[in-house]
Design a protein around this nucleic acid. Sequence first.
DNA 1: GTCTATAGGGCGATAGAC
DNA 2: GTCTATCGCCCTATAGAC
Lengths: 186, 186
Amino acid sequence: MGRWEPDARGRLRQAAMELFDECGYEQATVADIAARAGLTARTFFRYFADKREILFAGSEELAVGLTAALDTTAPPLDAVASALEVVAELIGGDHELSSRRQTIIAAHPDLQERERGKLAAWSDGLAAELGASGVDALTASLAAETGVGVFRVAFDRWVAGPGDTGLPQTLREAFTQLRAVTEPRR
Amino acid sequence: MGRWEPDARGRLRQAAMELFDECGYEQATVADIAARAGLTARTFFRYFADKREILFAGSEELAVGLTAALDTTAPPLDAVASALEVVAELIGGDHELSSRRQTIIAAHPDLQERERGKLAAWSDGLAAELGASGVDALTASLAAETGVGVFRVAFDRWVAGPGDTGLPQTLREAFTQLRAVTEPRR
DNA sequence: GTCTATAGGGCGATAGAC
DNA sequence: GTCTATCGCCCTATAGAC
């Protein structure tokens, strides 16, 4: 056994979620969270760049999985839609958790901004990957930006609802509707 | 003449832009900005909720103008595109200013997050307006989110470029390309 | 790990305009 | 008197420097 309890990162996340539930996001200070995890505030910042970031841990892995799931031989928007569906499978397993998390985020503009930033990073990653595979820059940006926008809409609908329709299914429906919305008049 | 110089808000903005140019965004403290405007830090926060906000003053008026320009009798995405074009006319007049501002924002993730938030507010406003005019919620959200995404892509291309092609024109091109990207295979 | 600067909020005092 | 803009001082938490 090591000198320190293992999984400091996980303990911090656990402590944070507990305290956010008990006292609210703002009331729970970084020092409080660290103390409950048996650590100091200084150590908190070794694991998370700032206080907000602890609610978005895991987003990095999703971003990596997202670009990895991108089939660059398919038409750009189809490729983006399929890759996002993979992510939807991963996230969509726990409607209860997503819902609780979203409730906290919805109450704090700072957190909403951070979430937008995370999704923006997905978009940038997708656009870069598409561009690297020969898609022209404008098309790549539009496909990535639009696809992630559809994901955001679908995710919001899914967390707001009862969750009996799965996230991947909600996402597919949103993409279908997007095609209708962008259909040129004839 | 009053006890105070007029237009404290404008003086703060002026002082901030000067100091950001001279010392960079982070180096210029709120106290510095306020002092140059002949005010104190405490007063700064009466006018701007936080330091970042001073770079986004005026965004509120644009949001209002955006929803006001929305022709709710047109098909949703067309309506959104036209309204955004009006905003593009307003912003697109000063490529030099937009470029300088964007350089500061690009260097600071915090500011990028804030900018995303401002555009998200545009999107929410558009979706709400569309919904109020009888468009179903999913369609409204998708049209608004997608349209603002196209605007973001177009704006980025415009500020990165030399600016000889106007922002409204760049935006129209991006919307045309969006139709191609979302075109179903036949 | 400790030390420190800055962001940002709370509250009351002040000095005018009306 | 009321209202409004500003200041001053104290405070805490964040986040970065040492």
